[in-house]
């Protein structure tokens, strides 16, 4: 498979064409949007934590390239039912793996997110794929100790 085909895998194209968790979030102020000024991508998140302290719903509203849209879509799916601490750890792991700070093989343990392994050959696109995840990290309620 060519590097291009590794990047734009079927699963990524599917989430780009029909993003899950995409919604109009007009109630979230624009000031809360996360932006990547180099490509004009912008994303707003809505994170709903249930009574049990688990993520009940994550939705996004934004515009961006295929990679950033697919990444946001896959993120909303992969967060469902996680504790806040686990969500934070998962986002942290995903970002570190794409930045090359830890081996990309950790993505193999993360279900469909393994599709982003091909991105490591395109360093300039890493920001596209991590935008939604950075937005999530600042949107999650603060927790001091895991599980607290």
């Amino acid at each position: 498979m060519s590097a291009f085909d590794e990047l734009y895998q079927e699963i990524i194209m599917d989430h780009y064409r029909s993003p899950r968790g995409a919604a109009k979030l007009d109630h979230v102020p624009q000031a809360m949007a996360h932006e990547n000024p180099t490509c004009g991508d912008s994303i707003k998140l809505e994170v709903v934590v249930g009574a049990g302290g688990r993520l009940e719903r994550v939705r996004f509203d934004g515009h961006g390239c295929a990679i950033s849209t697919a990444s946001a879509s896959l993120m909303t799916e992969s967060m469902h039912g996680l504790s806040v601490a686990d969500a934070r750890e998962r986002a942290d792991t995903f970002i570190k793996a794409l930045r090359g700070e830890i081996p990309a093989s950790v993505l193999d343990e993360m279900g469909d997110l393994a599709a982003f392994k091909g991105l490591t050959s395109f360093p300039v696109r890493v920001k596209c794929a991590t935008l939604a995840w950075h937005a999530l990290l600042v949107s999650l309620p603060r927790v001091t100790t895991p599980g607290a």
Binding site: F4, C39, C65, A66, R125, C128
Partner: peptide
């Protein structure tokens, strides 16, 4: 509606080099 980065990445697959972005003029 295709993002400029996606267009440029596709063109690169075809051996065509172009720029995509704000071109240092935000």
């Amino acid at each position: 509606d295709i993002h400029a980065h996606d267009v440029a990445q596709f063109l690169d697959r075809e051996g065509i080099a172009v720029r995509a972005g704000h071109h240092c003029a935000q």
